[in-house]
Write a protein that binds this DNA or RNA. Structure first.
Lengths: 106, 106
DNA sequence: TTGAAATATCGCGAGTTGACGATATGTTAA
DNA sequence: TTAACATATCGTCAACTCGCGATATTTCAA
């Protein structure tokens, strides 16, 4: 059936999951956080400072991205370090940078 | 200043625009529509049928994606054909397929 | 133990999104 | 014209998102 369709998954569940994860990334602060974490591991406080947001907000953004598998965290003393856990994130963010963040065009 | 930062745009406007466009793509039906349109041009009715949604909903999804530059349309008689207008979409969707849609994993 | 630092969670309210039925617009044929 | 087809837009409502202040939890040092 469905003749052509090279590849084309029409698995509603898979599409929904993909959309959920994409939506998780679709926030200016969260894109920025991923850009930062692609360069190394950072604490919640460092991330909040870099993004110029309150720490509870940073914590919330990080929780969302951890929930969909993008990030992981380890506690070390009082601090919690976050890092990128999903290897594909680098490529995805790279696409986004190339299209939207690279050349300063209107 | 800010020492390292290979590249790293922290342009809030650009990040916001990128997030807006990502959010536009972050819907299961819209991902599916883009997958379809990457293979050719289709009318609203054909797209609605493929996605198994009402035509007014298809029209709405298409309008959103056209608004952020992903798609373009031409009227031909009674029908309106949509096609991909943003060349980077292929690569972005390709990343998404690779991560979320390729292998049937839990 | 007590207090402070670092992080996480909760609750609220404003704003946004999505589905859907109803209606409007544009196009062709009779 | 009128009717039917194809698409677009509108209005409504429930659900979700975001920012934010308040509170809770965990850890360490004194």
């Amino acid at each position: 059936m469905d003749g052509a369709a090279k590849f084309q998954s029409f698995n509603v569940e898979a599409l929904t999951h993909a959309a959920d994860c994409l939506r998780t990334l679709a926030h200016p602060v969260r894109i920025r956080i991923v850009q930062l974490l692609l360069q190394g591991r950072y604490t919640v406080g460092e991330i909040a400072e870099d993004c110029r947001i309150a720490e509870n907000q940073a914590s919330e953004h990080l929780r969302l991205m951890q929930r969909c598998g993008f990030l992981s965290s380890q506690r070390e003393g009082r601090c919690v370090f976050y890092e990128v856990a999903e290897p594909h994130l680098e490529q995805i963010v790279s696409c986004i940078e190339e299209r939207f963040l690279a050349q300063p065009k209107s």
